[in-house]
């Protein structure tokens, strides 16, 4: 029986789904996230409630984690696992409790590339309940894993020579092209502004009225709102919410939100340019490159300490490249 550990921001019907927050400490959703339904149908044993922060591990063969700020990829890296942040729109977000809807995708995590490919095959697909999912024919991603990367142009965002990446375990790549995104230095800021703005809006529904935590100091409506949210959210969350409100406000949005939206479009265009010259790009998992897949919607896989990015809906290519690295790393029995 395949076991899968699910992060505690993915809804499982009738089970506590808390997002590690006081605000949802007693919340039991009356519905499953679509991905949970799909896993059950594919005979996975689903275990919910994993916080998947820096200190946790997964006591299962597979895992699912949200990835709006590279969390899944970072978690995988910390645990010597492999994670895929899928193309935006390829996995249903129905039942994913996210603060940042345009940046997040549920990410399959596994011990091997094959496991991740198998898990992705189960969870990907159009979902009626999530109208941002794209309808298309998704292939069986396990089929062509060992095809290798012959003839694939690999771009590299690393400054140092390729033999120094991955501790020398990088397979020799015939064609590598150095890739630069002129606006990369702004990626992290662009990401933060959009994330905080969406967080302000997506977390506004936590008001102590319909579900979740309600403050005991709630004699008036104003107290109900303000005390519930002051007590139910942690400091960082509150800071992000308030910052998000500032970024969207009438007097300030021209400096923050509106600029960030244009910055996002610019980064998308620059990445498109990069993909005109290369088929996949290997990048470090630093603050800037980690958010590029979230900002652009492109898929990215974290394997062996680096990140590989490909154009939208090119997961097949990503798996082949990741598999090549996996084999070169000495895990050819995976």
């Amino acid at each position: 029986m395949k076991t899968i550990s699910i992060k505690d921001d993915i809804c499982i019907k009738g089970e506590l789904t808390t997002c590690g927050s006081k605000m949802l400490a007693n919340f039991k959703p009356p519905y499953n996230a679509t991905v949970v339904d799909k896993l059950a149908a594919a005979c996975f044993n689903v275990i919910g409630g994993n916080t998947m922060d820096e200190n946790s591990s997964i006591d299962a063969d597979f895992a699912l984690c949200s990835d709006h700020a590279g969390l899944a990829r970072r978690f995988a890296m910390a645990n010597s696992l492999i994670a895929l942040k899928p193309t935006y729109g390829s996995v249903s977000r129905y039942g994913l409790i996210t603060p940042a809807p345009s940046l997040d995708q549920i990410s399959p995590i596994g011990k091997t590339v094959r496991d991740v490919a198998e898990l992705y095959s189960v969870i990907c697909g159009m979902d009626e309940r999530d109208s941002t999912t794209v309808e298309r024919d998704y292939p069986n991603f396990c089929e062509n894993l060992d095809k290798g990367i012959e003839g694939i142009i690999v771009g590299t965002a690393f400054c140092r020579p390729q033999q120094n990446i991955l501790g020398g375990k990088m397979p020799p790549l015939q064609k590598t092209i150095p890739i630069e995104l002129p606006s990369i230095e702004y990626a992290s800021t662009v990401f933060q502004i959009i994330a905080y703005a969406e967080t302000f809006s997506n977390l506004a529904r936590y008001d102590g009225i319909k579900f979740g935590y309600r403050s005991e100091n709630a004699a008036t409506l104003a107290e109900l709102y303000e005390n519930t949210r002051a007590e139910g959210f942690g400091y960082d969350t509150k800071k992000q919410i308030i910052t998000g409100a500032i970024a969207l406000s009438r007097d300030n949005r021209h400096l923050y939100y509106d600029r960030a939206i244009r910055g996002r479009a610019k980064l998308c265009a620059e990445l498109d340019n990069a993909f005109a010259q290369s088929d996949v790009i290997i990048t470090p998992l630093d603050d800037s490159w980690t958010v590029i897949p979230n900002l652009t919607g492109c898929p990215a896989i974290a394997v062996g300490g680096i990140q590989i990015i490909a154009p939208k809906f090119s997961e097949e290519l990503l798996f082949r490249a990741a598999r090549t690295i996996e084999i070169a790393g000495g895990d050819s029995n995976a």
Partner: peptide, 14 residues
């Protein structure tokens, strides 16, 4: 339903 109640993780369909 969860969508019109604004429950966490719910999404709209036009």
């Amino acid at each position: 339903c969860p969508v019109c109640m604004g429950m966490p993780g719910s999404l709209p369909q036009l």
